[in-house]
């Protein structure tokens, strides 16, 4: 596992030095600032608006990194030909992919933890209690990012960055509409639409399974079995995408 960790450390360092993270922090701070400003309009709703904007900022930041950085994670190594000297080293292609993924997961974790601290500080300032639901919703964002990273990584082994981003955003949108599509399929009289919707339900990850942000907003109850099942669901998709990535990557020629 040593090579995986070394590749992960280097990937982490590369992204940090790319300064994309700083731009995201600035974006998130603007979102939190906007939330506080809007919250002034209504004292009773200030906490809800702040929570709404804050969680959205964390969610968007993590998704942006997973999709945009994930899409270039391997393709950049191929385009810049740095992969030539790396893959001739004593490590397998799977270790390389795992290392790259782990590095980006650590970046997403850094951003999520950093922004969560800012959000927790805002809650503390607004005297909103920080409940376990807050941490669970952050965990949900991490799981969703993991799945999207898996998708971006898979596409990046055989497609250009632009197409990878397009495909992954497409799956991100479908993933959040899967439940609606399923509902509409049941109500629809069109057989074609019904087939398409059913294919979407089984063929795409349902990203709403990781959406626990409303729990923070409305103080709903969260069931442990739901969290466990969603975790297994997310890891299952991630492993599937990693397996497919490896299938494409295993015999890829680096001409």
């Amino acid at each position: 596992m040593k090579p995986v960790w070394i590749i992960a450390k280097n990937t982490y360092r590369e992204i940090i030095r790319d300064r994309i993270i700083y731009a995201l922090f600035v974006f998130a701070i603007i979102m939190v600032g906007a939330a506080l400003a809007l919250g002034q309009l209504s004292f009773s709703e200030q906490a809800r608006i702040s929570a709404n904007f804050g969680m959205a900022a964390i969610h968007i930041s993590a998704i942006i990194i997973a999709i945009f950085v994930g899409s270039s994670l391997v393709s950049k190594e191929i385009d810049k030909k740095t992969i030539l000297s790396i893959l001739t080293r004593p490590l397998s292609r799977l270790q390389f992919l795992l290392g790259k993924s782990l590095g980006l997961i650590l970046i997403i974790l850094t951003v999520i933890v950093g922004l969560s601290f800012i959000q927790a500080f805002v809650f503390w300032g607004l005297k909103v209690p920080i409940t376990p639901a807050f941490f669970v919703s952050i965990y949900g964002i991490l799981l969703e990012s993991l799945v999207l990273l898996g998708i971006a990584l898979m596409f990046s082994t055989f497609s250009s960055s632009f197409l990878v981003v397009s495909f992954t955003i497409g799956i991100f949108l479908i993933g959040h509409w899967v439940e609606n599509l399923n509902f509409l399929a049941k109500k629809s009289s069109s057989e074609l639409f019904s087939i398409f919707a059913k294919l979407s339900v089984y063929g795409f990850p349902n990203l709403e399974k990781f959406n626990w942000r409303d729990v923070v907003l409305y103080n709903d109850d969260l069931r442990l079995d739901e969290i466990v099942m969603s975790t297994l669901y997310g890891l299952g998709w991630w492993i599937l995408f990693l397996f497919l990535t490896m299938m494409f990557f295993r015999k890829k020629d680096f001409a």
Binding site: N10, E14, T82, L84, S85, T88
Partner: peptide
């Protein structure tokens, strides 16, 4: 191995 062009991690 030394590749044809010196393609390395420029940020290091």
């Amino acid at each position: 191995f030394l590749p044809e062009q010196p393609y390395f991690y420029s940020y290091l």
